[in-house]
């Protein structure tokens, strides 16, 4: 992918990421997040990771954010109903963000592999097959455990949301 496209979509992702917290209207925030997810998916696709890119759109933009939007609309959240941010909260938020950036810098600094230019991919990657293969061989036990966890969560939702009969 030409660098121009990379910079365009990276910039789009960041701009709409900022817009998520800057928008006064909750619906606008949610939609900004959707655009940010789609730009992120484009970056994945540009790395030949089609599967992850498409899953990013399918799961996050197509399902999770639709449910978010659904809840926002049902609760009828309006702009201006947000609480005014406290000075201490703002300072705390900035501090936490700075700590994360510092950690990231530390990790990147201690990871010399990141400076090497990787060779270009020769053949197109069969990413669905490779992900499936790894999931069912090397990571089979964690995969099964996650499946049981999700089952527990599903049953929990059904039990919690079921109306009391008596």
């Amino acid at each position: 992918m030409p660098p121009l496209l990379f910079w365009t979509f990276a910039a789009l992702m960041l701009i709409f990421g900022i817009s998520v917290i800057a928008q006064p209207n909750p619906v606008s925030s949610a939609l900004s997040l959707v655009v940010s997810f789609i730009a992120l998916a484009v970056l994945f696709v540009s790395l030949d990771a089609f599967f992850i890119g498409i899953i990013q759109i399918l799961v996050y933009a197509g399902a999770v954010m639709v449910l978010f939007l659904f809840i926002i609309m049902l609760l009828d959240l309006r702009s201006g109903q947000r609480k005014k941010a406290h000075a201490v909260t703002v300072a705390g938020g900035i501090l936490i963000a700075l700590i994360f950036v510092a950690e990231l810098g530390q990790v990147l600094h201690a990871f010399p592999e990141g400076n090497r230019t990787a060779p270009a991919l020769g053949a197109p990657v069969q990413d669905v097959q490779s992900v499936g293969h790894v999931l069912f061989t090397s990571y089979n036990l964690p995969f099964q455990i996650v499946a049981v966890l999700i089952l527990v969560a599903t049953i929990g939702v059904v039990v919690l949301s079921k109306k009391e009969l008596d």
């Binding site: 959707v34 498409i54 899953i55 759109i57 399918l58 933009a61 197509g62 939007l69 990413d127 669905v128």
Partner: peptide, 21 residues
Amino acid sequence: VNIGVLFVFAVASLGVYGIVL
């Protein structure tokens, strides 16, 4: 593309935004 069907589902899942908005 190698993941044609997933692409279809991904794009189709975005179709709901027009109606919701």
